[in-house]
Nucleic acid binder design. Structure first.
Lengths: 206, 206
DNA sequence: ATAATTTTTAATCATTTGATTAAATCAAAT
DNA sequence: ATTTGATTTAATCAAATGATTAAAAATTAT
């Protein structure tokens, strides 16, 4: 298991190559549809090597999923708890942050959501997402703004939906509007500015 | 292949039982993760019978997917092209229609979106969704309202997202808010009234 | 009732697939 | 140069899985 001697950077090590290949294939096809041979081929290595490094398909998947979730959550806590920014500014920051992230990892959300549904237990306990959100400055500001007229959870759903849904539905949207990936990305770029405006309007309407 | 003689209603025929079981299992686990044996067991029949009726897993899946898509599209065209209703009224009708549909079939959207991504070709040509939408009365009303300030496709995404996203993300939302299915459904019921209001506000803000 | 047809089953096949093993190769240490 | 340990490979295993087959059971027609 030691790879201490061979001269190689952390990024080009065989282990890392396999992990990256696994991330790519798992994200694209989901756990059930990916064969370990696909990952091996994508990584340019032998099948046995994959098991040598990661014991099993499941272990490798858990690792990839963990890192995907971290990637998805990383940086959000800081935005949510910034004391200097207004609610609208936070929404703007969230939109920018996630749209940039998702432009580079468009099928991350569908992958995560699919696999959570396929195996809810695996995530149940994971991370204090609930706490992080509910105790955040963001949520307090949101509660203050909605003034009990509407459950603030609606707006959490709305904001996440406005940001994430186009990426989840992009295969369908590309067909409907038959736009290229570039045009789609341009649309998403516009949304960075529009989403805060829209959410503001929604909040005032309630 | 003939089932014309035996006395059985269309709904309790073996063929129909298998189709329903297949729909249930496929929708829940996706194509790759479902084994034909699961479907057979769910339908309470033998494995060979499944192949006797439907030739193969793929054929059965195509059938189920086709019917899922029809279920999803059914009734929309009429709403989109109603000449008597305003844009807001159409949005209200769409929200009611889909929220009712999705309360009864909560994992339909994630199933459809996942399988489209896994196999985009299969849907490419299917149904004139694009035409149905773009030539609809609804879309004309939408274009008139947005007055070129913002690409109307944004609002198509927003409306679909506001309606559908909570169901796509429900596994995650249930964890975040740890609400029961009943509470979740109550929230969705509220959205029937709120979504038209929210979309109105968004449209006016642009 | 008997024959013919349809439906259902148990047993089995062939392929796929996750995993293992034993040997070969490679890099570093002595 | 040789030894040692890490890395990689080819070959193979065992289980899972989609599919088929041949026979039995049930149903309908004669």
């Amino acid at each position: 298991m030691a790879k201490t001697t061979k001269l190689e950077t952390a990024d080009s090590s065989t282990e890392e190559k396999i992990k990256e290949a696994a991330s790519k294939v798992f994200t694209q096809k989901g756990f059930a549809a990916t064969r370990t041979r696909d990952i091996a081929e994508e990584a340019g290595i032998n099948l046995a090597l994959l098991n040598y490094y990661f014991r099993s398909k499941e272990k490798l998947f858990d690792l990839v999923m963990m890192e995907s979730l971290q990637k998805f959550m990383m940086g959000v806590k800081d935005i949510l708890n910034d004391v200097n920014s207004s609610l609208t500014e936070k929404i703007s920051l969230l939109a920018s942050h996630y749209i940039d992230l998702l432009k580079a990892n468009a099928d991350l959300p569908l992958f995560i959501l699919s696999e959570i549904r396929a195996n809810p237990e695996r995530l149940e306990t994971k991370m204090g997402v609930k706490e992080m959100l509910l105790q955040s400055n963001f949520f307090k500001q949101l509660e203050a703004t909605t003034k009990k007229t509407v459950d603030p959870v609606h707006f959490v759903m709305n904001i996440i939906g406005l940001i994430v849904f186009p990426f989840v539905a992009s295969p369908m949207l590309m067909i409907i509007g038959d736009r290229s990936k570039t045009e789609f990305d341009a649309l998403m770029e516009e949304r960075k500015k529009m989403i805060p405006v829209w959410v503001d309007a929604m909040l005032k309407s309630s």
